[in-house]
């Protein structure tokens, strides 16, 4: 007998449903059809409660405990000690004046803030430019869209390995630059010749700003396509006839952009802004694998501080990590409210 894959799948699907149908039907008879809603919700609520809601509550408690045990009962209450240690700094702007935990926390915080404030606007501008270009009448739009989106599919570890390889001291970027300078000097007149290229240790040179630059670049490289895609969808949702009407009115291209495209794209832009900002504050994977937070602490981010406090080294300072999480959560909450307030004010106008 010939078996079609689709028929086989349908049979499997039916059987799987029927197996569970017996007990479910009995249950329904017992509790009534309306209450089956709770049965459908139960698995989700269990997992959500156990692994999201309960930890959220637990986090507050852990923030007030000390010691190194993972067993709650063995953790002594220490009151505000953890917070005091994190916050007892002569100057927050200079983390070196803080204690060990405070140093790590404030370094991570300032690095993350810097990262987010530079990376987010940069990425939105580039993503918007790319989306605008892809929204033009170009051939093979699907192909280009796929090109930009492909890095989004790659894992942070893979992204970090690729760029680490490119940015090594003896990596291909330095090799390419060296070659470029060499070639230039070979063809350029004497007075335009450049000094010989000296390889830069992109990710390790502590005195330059290069490590942070590349962290921002690589992160943007990896995530750009996603936001570009959302903006492109937003652009394509703007009705064509608006532009046609504007054209009939003799509106210039730039005026069309400022008076039609941008205002109508605003809701999408706000989504992109909120999403990218929240994500930027949680940056960890790419940076951790790429630089490990180094050189020194130059690219150490907030989440890395939490991760390392709790899980790295001999002293597992869960209390400090939890207290830091509380502070980060507060920060994110304030940020979200600010964004909402700004958005609402804009909408009000």
């Amino acid at each position: 007998m010939q078996v079609r894959p689709q028929a086989a799948f349908e049979w499997l699907w039916k059987t799987a449903g029927d197996v569970l149908d017996g007990p479910m039907r009995a249950l329904q008879r017992h509790i009534g059809a309306h209450r089956m809603a709770y049965v459908f919700l139960l698995p989700n609520l269990l997992v959500f409660g156990l692994f999201s809601f309960w930890p959220m509550i637990l986090n507050f408690y852990i923030a007030f405990t000390g010691g190194q045990s993972v067993i709650l009962a063995d953790r002594p209450l220490v009151g505000l000690d953890n917070f005091r240690e994190l916050l007892a700094c002569p100057s927050y702007l200079d983390p070196r004046t803080c204690g060990v935990a405070g140093y790590s926390f404030w370094t991570g915080l300032w690095n993350t803030l810097f990262f987010a404030l530079v990376q987010v606007p940069l990425m939105i501008v580039v993503a918007l430019a790319t989306a605008l270009i892809l929204n033009r009448d170009i051939r093979a739009r699907g192909f280009w869209r796929a090109v930009y989106f492909y890095p989004v599919m790659l894992s942070p570890v893979v992204v970090a390995v690729i760029w680490d390889w490119i940015l090594k001291r003896r990596g291909i970027l330095n090799a390419a630059l060296e070659k470029a300078v060499e070639t230039w000097n070979a063809i350029a007149p004497t007075f335009l010749m450049m000094a010989d290229y000296r390889a830069i240790n992109w990710l390790i040179d502590a005195r330059s700003g290069w490590p942070m630059f590349w962290v921002i670049f690589v992160y943007t490289w990896a995530h750009l396509g996603f936001y570009m895609l959302i903006l492109l969808a937003g652009l394509q949702a703007i009705p064509r006839d608006l532009y046609e009407a504007a054209q009939m009115d003799g509106t210039s291209k730039s005026r069309q952009f400022w008076r039609i495209t941008l205002p109508l794209l605003m809701p999408t832009m706000i989504v992109v802004l909120v999403l990218s900002l929240i994500r930027a504050f949680q940056v960890f994977d790419e940076v951790y694998v790429l630089t490990g937070g180094g050189p020194g602490q130059a690219t150490k981010m907030m989440i890395q501080h939490i991760y390392e406090s709790a899980f790295i080294g001999d002293a597992k300072r869960y209390g400090i990590a939890a207290a830091s999480s509380v502070l980060v959560a507060l920060l994110l909450m304030v940020l979200t409210f600010l964004q909402l307030a700004v958005t609402r004010k804009k909408a009000g106008n």
Partner: peptide
């Protein structure tokens, strides 16, 4: 509630989640 948790980053509950999973 479910939509609201979209705003709570999973990264800030690392420690308690670890303890729950560990227990």
């Amino acid at each position: 509630t479910i939509v609201a948790t979209l705003l709570i980053p999973p990264t800030v509950i690392l420690v308690p989640l670890f303890m729950t999973v560990s227990s």
